[in-house]
């Protein structure tokens, strides 16, 4: 198996995985994946169901720690430091590497409290005014401010699905992370809400390193500049999105994007 990195211009990697394998009990879910994730681009992980792309995404902020049987081998660096080293503070890591989930999961609290949750936990705001400012800024960045500014005290769960997902994105960016991981953020949304999220991803890219797992190849093509194709727990190919979709090196990638399987 060859992993094609050589068609990429030299960029500084925000996160870089080196020979990462993930096990659930005895089962190997991820096999020896190495990849550099740049700050200035959106990186998409594509592949058929069960190929391990979500599992790999969750290793990037150690969310797999919550699964007792999961075990990670290899090294994942964030700014050159291994996040699996002993003494690594997972709380700090997750403040720097935020996550948005497949199904919108706002807390059963007000819109305001949903956004203020992270800043409060990490002590980012001194006093009410500063917190208000963070909430407003985050909602504006997530393109939700105009829709909710008059009802910040309403429950976050009362919003529509698309609004909830943007609320979750706003919640993630409220702690000013460096990387945002998105695990199929649009799979529970209708096309219009999806378009809004994709627009938002484009606006946020550059400011945050964004990694998005998606089932939809069109979505990967629309929002990402880098694409990694996963199959059966291995990363088959990684390169510019335009190359992957028009001129893949690997036969399996070709087969997948032309719809032979998946």
């Amino acid at each position: 198996m060859t992993v094609v990195h050589d068609n990429l211009e030299k960029t500084e990697a925000k996160m870089s995985a080196k020979g990462v394998s993930v096990f659930y009990g005895d089962k190997k879910a991820i096999d020896d994946v190495s990849i550099d994730i740049p700050t200035e681009y959106v990186t998409a992980f594509i592949g058929p169901s069960g190929c391990g792309k979500s599992t790999f995404l969750r290793t990037l902020n150690r969310m797999n720690d919550t699964i007792p049987t999961a075990r990670v081998e290899g090294e994942i660096d964030l700014d050159g430091q291994d996040i699996y080293r002993s003494g690594m503070d997972v709380v700090q890591l997750r403040a720097r590497v935020g996550m948005v989930f497949q199904k919108p999961n706002p807390f059963p609290k007000s819109i305001y409290d949903n956004i203020a949750y992270g800043p409060k936990i990490h002590g980012l705001a001194e006093g009410k005014d500063e917190l208000d400012a963070i909430v407003e800024k985050s909602l504006k960045r997530a393109g939700l401010w105009e829709e909710v500014k008059d009802r910040l005290q309403d429950s976050g769960t009362a919003l529509s699905g698309g609004q909830q997902q943007r609320l979750c994105i706003a919640r993630a960016i409220a702690v000013d992370p460096e990387v945002i991981l998105m695990d199929e953020p649009c799979s529970a949304l209708d096309p219009i809400a999806t378009a809004k999220i994709e627009e938002l991803i484009a606006e946020l890219s550059g400011r945050f390193a964004i990694v998005i797992v998606t089932h939809s190849m069109q979505q990967a093509a629309r929002v990402s500049q880098r694409t990694a194709f996963f199959h059966l727990g291995k990363m088959v190919e990684y390169g510019r999105t335009s190359d992957i979709f028009t001129n893949p090196h690997e036969q399996r990638t070709q087969d997948y994007i032309t719809g032979r399987y998946g």
């Binding site: 700090q92 890591l93 999961n105 807390f107 949750y117 992270g118």
Partner: peptide, 24 residues
């Protein structure tokens, strides 16, 4: 998903319990 959401924000287990799970 509530628990994951809170942990992914960098909350500790006890913060998650106190601020998300018990209220919910």
């Amino acid at each position: 998903a509530m628990r994951d959401g809170s942990l992914a924000m960098g909350a500790t287990t006890s913060e998650t319990i106190r601020r998300v799970l018990v209220p919910a």
